[in-house]
Amino acid sequence: MEQDFVMLSLPPLVIGICAAVACALPGNFLLLRRQALIGDAISHVVLPGIVAAFLLAGVVATGPMMLGAAVAALIAAVLIEAIRRLGRIEPGAAMGVVFTAMFAGGVLLLEQSSASGVHLDVQHALYGNLESLIWLDGWGWGALLDGQALRGLPPELLRMAGVMLAVAAFTALFWRALVLSTFDEGFARTQGLHTGALGFALVAVAAVAAVAAFDAVGSIIVIAMFICPPAAARLMTNRMGRQVAWSLGFAVLSAVLGYVLAGYGPLWLGYQNALSAAGMIATVSGIILGFAALLGPCRHPGGAPRGRGAE
């Protein structure tokens, strides 16, 4: 049992937590900047990049695919901006035009590639396969101290953990600037902050987190974690620091609870087949958001808790 857990469940659990945290952190700022749907857009537009990289490289390799995804995200950003400016179209609609068209291109490429003999799975891209990221060398808790066994950890784990740390470092380093430019861009500019560059950096960091998580756990978690934990946290408090803390707590809770429910829930009910962990994590985060929307102290449109004045 103990060996099973370390071998089969620990790595996906850790990867899920890392992915959730890496997405929820920038999600807090995107939510307040009304750019919450960027996670949705990114996870759609990277598909053609990943497929094109796969077709060019000929193998399912992470390096080229990440590069392809990054290039696709960049192209999408340029296209959205160009269409918005040239056509004088509102940003939401411009985004909708670009991400659906690029996703369609990706699916078309994918069908063509599977027709030519090699196979790359659409469903893998959509809902990942967290469950398959197992650690064959993990013979027990002791393996965590065993250098030989540690080398056998799934590469996604290290990558996701690295991205999470990088995102956390970015947030910590630019905390004041990010908060300031999110709430009052004009004032931030008078303080000498480059708000444009900062906004772009935020989106770039979000894109990196999304692409890394997309590779490991599929796009559903990405979209859900960008929005649900920060949104639930927003209903709990008026302070930015506390909001981020709440959102991280919600993200970890969703990842753990979702993974456990998907993996063990059916067993408890007497079924054999495990459920989709990615889908369950998204569902749990939605349930948390539901509770926050019903009971959160700062849930009302005005923001302040009812019956008390603003702080």
Partner: peptide
């Protein structure tokens, strides 16, 4: 709630889709 429409769109979209995937499995 105080959530803006885009946040609500993203939340509904991802959660319902995730639930659908769970049911699919």
């Amino acid at each position: 709630t105080r959530l803006t429409e885009d946040a609500a769109i993203g939340a509904v979209l991802s959660v319902f889709f995730g639930l659908g995937i769970v049911l699919l499995t």
